[in-house]
Design a protein around this nucleic acid. Structure first.
Lengths: 182, 182
DNA sequence: TCCAAGCGTTGAAAATATTGCACACTCTGG
DNA sequence: CCAGAGTGTGCAATATTTTCAACGCTTGGA
């Protein structure tokens, strides 16, 4: 996706006209028109000015450029997942049929008091997760974090890590780890 | 951190001279000099050419951490995620600081009527997800599935795919894709 | 020592981006 | 039906960036 089309998409998403955005950004409407039609390649400074009127940073702007990825047995019903629970922590592996898998995608439930254990996990690859219910305590290396609903994490699997639920509400976590180590 | 200084830092990190980079990029050494001294604000097209000589994408360039401790960030508060939404679909990238990431881990919200688009996505790697709220319609290849709350999916990214919310309730999806292509 | 090859910088010319203004078009209200 | 305010586009003038061709500097080898 080119710069012009991307700018136009974002501008329309925000419900702004070329002139309105131009006024906010402190440039002329012609500039916006030219950029959107890709008849010029704006300078960083002017693109930055334009984006300030949205407002949006250069990083955010260029981060949108990926060809978005959405998208065997493909779909699994909630009760159909492979249970790989250890101890009191319930872990459901999404996509049980995929053996040479690239991602270990888990739906984990931590009842009050649950703990992944004293010895911390170490593995290759990277790990990400988001907490969608309750609260959890995450330890990575020597740091301990409190995760609240909606919070997420991303770290290198070579760092030892551990999850614990010292609270009195169950917690639900969606996590992805790569490469799959099952 | 300004564009010029950032470019210079990256160039030196790669052990390239202005002239060497200029040659690879297909611009003149003066251009590099001017940009690095911030005596001009390069056009997107020329910055893109310059970065191609490194090689590096515009997104990577602007996403580069300036604060070292960003590398160490493990936990992200809910509002702190990088928004990479396209169209009406809200997508939050978990772990914004990780550039050479192995997983694209996203928290996505599909309002009623939202759609990833007519042309279906295709990419390398694999993709997994779990629906934690609402209902969604998933199309993979020629098959269309109805996802309900708690349902999940796992498939190869080489199959064209698309997500749609034809229902009147918003849907929230947690997804992981590998390799990360942004 | 001197030369050749590398480095980054700089001024004037060429190329490109931005402005200022006008145009054609689509609405909406009178 | 027209007037007025909105939209995006296009063109000549202006401002900025990029190139070309130097310059002075440092380094390493003959």
């Amino acid at each position: 996706m080119d710069v012009g089309t991307r700018l136009q998409t974002i501008r329309r998403l925000k419900g702004l006209s070329q002139r309105e955005l131009a006024k906010r950004a402190g440039v002329t409407n012609s500039t916006i028109s030219m950029i959107e039609k890709n008849s010029v390649s704006p300078s960083i400074s002017s693109l930055k000015k334009v984006l300030a009127g949205i407002p949006m940073s250069l990083m955010e702007f260029f981060s949108m450029d990926m060809e978005q990825d959405r998208h065997a047995q493909v779909v699994y019903k909630a009760g159909e997942l492979l249970d790989i629970s250890t101890g009191s922590v319930s872990m459901k592996l999404i996509g049980k049929a995929h053996t040479g898998r690239a991602i270990a995608f888990l739906d984990e439930t931590y009842p009050p008091g649950a703990d992944t254990g004293e010895e911390m996990f170490v593995h290759d690859g990277e790990e990400a997760g988001v907490l969608i219910e309750g609260r959890l305590e995450l330890t990575v290396g020597s740091q301990t974090y409190l995760l609240e609903c909606g919070d997420s994490y991303y770290f290198d699997g070579s760092q030892p890590h551990r999850l614990r639920n010292p609270f009195d509400q169950p917690a639900r976590l969606i996590s992805a780890t790569t490469p799959a180590n099952f």
